[in-house]
Design a protein around this nucleic acid. Structure first.
Lengths: 266, 266
DNA sequence: CATTTTTGTCCGATATACTAGACAGCGCGT
DNA sequence: ACGCGCTGTCTAGTATATCGGACAAAAATG
């Protein structure tokens, strides 16, 4: 049994607080940061200790060191901490390492501004889907999405595109069985998912209605990187009652913009 | 100055990083990430080890752990690593924790789009100045700025604003003496700097010509947070030959937009 | 006011994370 | 071919980082 199982993304997050084990500081740090990301709000040291199953003394030690390094910062007056400025800089460096990341963001902005719809930049993280950035629609019934929250791949239109480089066996091995269970409790048949991937591959886009929830219609188009790999998608999240004519129009726009971002690669 | 000194502002010791000192993994991680930030480019593990003064075996151990956690990711085929996706998510969470951060970014975008000039969002990190985000002017002689690079506070117009809540003694204690030495070798008299801070406080903006370099004219205006503290500034970086009339116009625009971002606090 | 819970800090003991060094495989220049 | 430098992995030994628990002070509770 390897102790590196610690931060695996499949962890149900509740248990695993099995005390008694001694862990490396670096592991604690990683677990701590991921716990903060899940919480999406400042936490107090005591709560963090409980959440990550670490001794209080250890947690104080680590939190204080991270505060010194600006990777965490205190929020408010009663001992809450959250991500610090250094994280912003590291993240910025990550994003902008890809030389045309600014162009992608500009496209995201323009799509949102021109259409007024919710637009997302999506990708994979491990065997989960994540939103890397988004622009929320401004309407009264805004559909907003959470950057950084991990979602089972089968729940998403983008996921079908992002897996389209894999063959069926690879997909079967990659997706944990429980991820086929949709939020409403239905089970998505694996064969249906595989067929959807094949369709996405063939069409060069993906569309899903009432998949992750009953109220949204998602359109996704791939951004090809310099080597032709498909690691990012642009995605519209529309109200499900969006008229077909508009959906078609938006899909065309999305595909055009996404395509224009690719190929220019290194 | 040896590179192994990295950027620890608090620990005066270290110095001979080559010595056989044993360090905690968590410290290594922090030093490693800051080294990567400075480098602003993917590095190979061997180079990292040398740069941060850590044993190779330790460096491999740490890098592999961070790769697992997605805090680093491999770039290319020959063992280069750089920040990973998790960093983006942590940094995004940091930025957007402030509820009106999106409004600030939108303002940054609009200022850049409307004026075509370089615009920056600035702040402090420890006793240094950093650019948190920027939009570079598109002109042929673009003045571009590096997000995340730490700069001595006296070199910047924004710095004068960001220190305006301190009294003179506090400033004297806060700024390391060598930071008064400008990039061209001139020494900025401390009294002159203190006077500039007082002026900035009184005017509610700050302006500097040919300070950090001979070719730029900087305009900075504060963004007040919910409690009236001044932790962020908006800043134009103009070519030094920008006509006065235009500078006045831009300053007014900048102050207006920056002011409109404040006060709406929590 | 008394009682309970939580916070932040400190300390000694010991399990272990880090280090030094070795090793095989690879690429490169001569 | 050879030597040289670099990479990535592995191992054993020990300096030390982590842990449990204790403590006072501060909040929360009744």
């Amino acid at each position: 049994m390897t102790e590196t199982e610690t931060l695996d993304r499949n962890r149900p997050e509740t248990a695993t607080a099995t005390g008694g084990e001694r862990k490396r500081g670096i592991d604690r740090v990683i677990i701590l940061l991921e716990a903060l990301l899940r919480q999406r709000a400042p936490m107090r040291v005591g709560d963090i200790a409980r959440r990550i199953g670490a001794p209080r003394s250890t947690t104080y030690e680590i939190v204080n060191r991270l505060l010194e390094a600006d990777m965490l910062e205190t929020v408010g007056t009663d001992g809450h901490v959250y991500f610090g400025r250094a994280m912003h800089l590291f993240g910025w460096a990550y994003s902008h390492h890809n030389a045309h990341y600014p162009r992608i963001i500009e496209t995201l902005d323009r799509l949102a501004a021109e259409t007024g719809e919710t637009v997302q930049l999506c990708s994979l993280r491990g065997n989960k889907y994540v939103v890397l950035d988004c622009r929320d629609s401004a309407g009264p019934f805004r559909i907003s999405s959470q950057v950084g929250v991990e979602v089972p791949i089968p729940w998403t239109a983008s996921g079908r595109l992002l897996l389209s480089h894999m063959d069926e066996d690879a997909v079967r091995a990659f997706i944990p069985p429980e991820d086929y269970r949709l939020p409403d409790g239905r089970w998505l048949p694996q064969e249906e998912f595989l067929a959807a991937i094949a369709l996405a591959r063939q069409q060069g886009y993906s569309e899903s209605a009432a998949l992750a929830d009953r109220f949204t219609w998602c359109l996704a188009a791939p951004i090809l990187d310099g080597r032709g790999a498909m690691t990012l998608t642009l995605c519209f999240v529309l109200p499900i009652d969006t008229p077909e004519a508009r959906r078609i129009e938006l899909l065309a726009l999305l595909r055009e913009r996404a395509a224009s971002l690719g190929l220019v690669g290194e």
